[in-house]
Simulated scan of single mutants.
Amino acid sequence: MRTIEEKPIKLKVVRTRRGAILHMIEISKNHFFLEQNPLKDSKYG
């Protein structure tokens, strides 16, 4: 395997208004991935 590109990221643990604790992976200021909220029904799960 060869690395093509490498970027620094931030891993955050956040709490939603409903009290769920989720993991957020922040790639840049306005680009992030958020873990699915287990307290809500999922249309994708």
Results as ranks from 00 to 15, higher is better:
16 T>G: 04
1 M>E: 06
37 N>M: 04
36 Q>N: 09
5 E>V: 08
18 R>Q: 10
30 N>D: 15
6 E>Q: 12
5 E>T: 06
34 L>C: 08
36 Q>W: 07
20 A>T: 10
19 G>T: 06
36 Q>L: 12
1 M>G: 14
3 T>R: 10
39 L>R: 04
9 I>Q: 02
22 L>G: 05
25 I>E: 07
42 S>I: 00
23 H>L: 15
39 L>T: 07
45 G>A: 12
10 K>N: 09
9 I>F: 05
17 R>Y: 07
29 K>A: 12
4 I>A: 07
24 M>P: 00
13 V>E: 09
42 S>K: 05
24 M>G: 01
23 H>S: 12
27 I>P: 00
21 I>K: 13
22 L>Y: 05
22 L>E: 01
40 K>I: 11
27 I>N: 01
25 I>M: 14
17 R>D: 11
24 M>C: 12
27 I>D: 04
6 E>K: 14
8 P>A: 09
20 A>K: 04
25 I>G: 01
41 D>T: 11
38 P>R: 00
45 G>Y: 05
17 R>L: 08
21 I>W: 03
40 K>G: 02
44 Y>I: 15
19 G>D: 06
10 K>T: 10
14 V>W: 03
12 K>H: 07
6 E>M: 09
27 I>S: 00
8 P>C: 01
5 E>D: 10
28 S>G: 03
36 Q>F: 08
3 T>M: 10
17 R>M: 07
17 R>N: 12
45 G>F: 02
33 F>I: 15
22 L>A: 03
29 K>N: 13
2 R>Q: 09
34 L>D: 05
31 H>N: 12
23 H>N: 14
16 T>Q: 08
44 Y>G: 03
45 G>T: 07
14 V>H: 03
32 F>G: 03
21 I>Y: 04
43 K>C: 06
9 I>P: 01
33 F>W: 13
9 I>T: 09
2 R>H: 08
31 H>R: 11
28 S>F: 00
18 R>L: 04
8 P>V: 03
8 P>L: 07
37 N>I: 00
33 F>L: 15
45 G>S: 12
29 K>R: 14
30 N>Y: 13
10 K>S: 12
44 Y>T: 15
37 N>P: 02
43 K>G: 02
22 L>S: 05
11 L>M: 09
7 K>E: 08
21 I>G: 02
24 M>L: 15
10 K>I: 08
39 L>I: 00
30 N>V: 02
17 R>E: 11
